[in-house]
Design a protein around this nucleic acid. Structure first.
Lengths: 240, 240
DNA sequence: CATTTCACCTGACTC
DNA sequence: TGAGTCAGGTGAAAT
């Protein structure tokens, strides 16, 4: 067990400090923050910290018997750094032999804006059994990634993928956008006409070689691309 | 209640006609006829015609008490237009707050060859309470869809919306595509540059006036649009 | 085994 | 906006 640490003030105004023991961290995968709406808990930590067949089956949300618990899972209640409670369903998936947090997880991902590579951290209170039953969840952003260019349109600002920009169209010049309502996930891509009777795109400044066709590749330092007489402006990534 | 109608001969050879009252129709979704093996009954109809907590809990397959019925559902017995009996489990899903027909439904879908967009129709006998307890199910193929132009790209064929094609970009020429995985719903849109130093698009043949900006409108008879030196070919809708 | 059934779950959408 | 509906999913159990 790691050295207990003093936390920031908890939600309970009568407690100024909570002594916590760190349990484990997980660097979340794309699936952990994607639409599968589940977080896989590494088996070694799951069995150590969140046993599903405990002798002392006194956890909140526990079913009546250990066998039932194994089948139905548990309701685990955490507090985040602001004292906000988070209740997650935690269970074992026989099919994948893995321990997962399911219900409630996607709300956490959304509220915190978790992305792949970010770290979630699990702790519990330190001290007597009652204190140790108190669970905490925290998270931190992954190390800053190299800046990516963004295309700032007239009405939309659209994060660009870092790789080559491609389109399912091979025979037309197409500038496509693809997004999901009410999320910030946008995907812009385009292609040059196959038989281009078009001016070659000019990239300013410090342009990498723009290969087109089959695709336009933008360097992270490009700030402006003039394409078919149209100015495309790139900006730094949006503040998060 | 709609006007009672005389049906075709029923399964009971002693009865030549059955008087039916139409209850409701549902245009089935892809999920209703897909692998989920369930039919969602719109709540308004479910609660009106197939109540799960009836005072008179005398329906076939009803559990012993109203509370039990709510939990376990009912066995509903229908006759199709040929008098063939169809028994479906009908219940309420707490999690999605929806009424569903489950067991038995996939067999109906398979036998009738139901596809998305087809309509299933629910009726019951007209007259005294006993007659009204007799349930009927029928279905009809969806209307042939009106032809829509399709944009046939090199690698993709993308159904176009019938209305004007617009884009959230106002300042660049953008040809966007927007779709949801595994459904056939695609949405193609584009716009001309706001300050177009571009040739006007030419539309062949029988072109409607192409207004651009702010948007390009394609008539259903347009087969080809030459836009910025790029040919866009339109075809009839794909065979289904 | 695959397929069906079952009891959940979530997000997109509507009002 | 927030609440309700429901289409489209899931894992597990039943068949």
């Amino acid at each position: 067990m790691e050295k207990p640490v003093l936390s920031s003030p908890s939600a309970d105004p009568s407690l100024v400090f909570v002594v916590k023991e760190h349990m484990f961290d997980k660097v979340v995968t794309p699936s952990d923050v994607g639409k599968l709406n589940r977080l896989v808990i590494p088996k070694q930590y799951a069995e150590k910290y969140f046993p599903l067949d405990p002798e002392e089956s006194d956890r909140e949300g526990a079913a009546s018997s250990p066998a039932e618990t194994k089948k139905l899972g548990l309701l685990l209640s955490f507090e985040d750094r602001g004292g906000k409670p988070w209740r997650f369903r935690y269970s074992y998936w026989n099919s994948s032999q893995s321990y997962v947090i399911t219900k409630g997880w996607s709300r956490f991902v959304k509220e915190k804006g978790l992305g792949a590579g970010d770290t979630v951290s699990f702790s519990r209170g330190s001290g007597n059994p009652a204190a140790r039953r108190r669970l905490f969840i925290d998270w931190k952003r992954r190390q800053p990634q190299p800046a990516r260019p963004h295309l700032r349109g007239f009405t939309n600002t659209i994060p660009l993928p870092s790789g080559p920009l491609t389109s399912p169209f091979n025979s037309i010049m197409a500038c496509g956008h693809h997004w999901r309502a009410r999320t910030a996930l946008y995907n812009v891509n385009w292609l040059a006409p196959a038989a281009a009777a078009q001016p070659k795109p000019e990239v300013h400044p410090g342009a990498p070689a723009a290969t087109m066709p089959p695709s336009v590749t933008l360097g992270s330092r490009s700030k402006r691309l003039r394409l078919f007489g149209v100015n495309l402006d790139f900006s730094e990534p949006l503040p998060e």
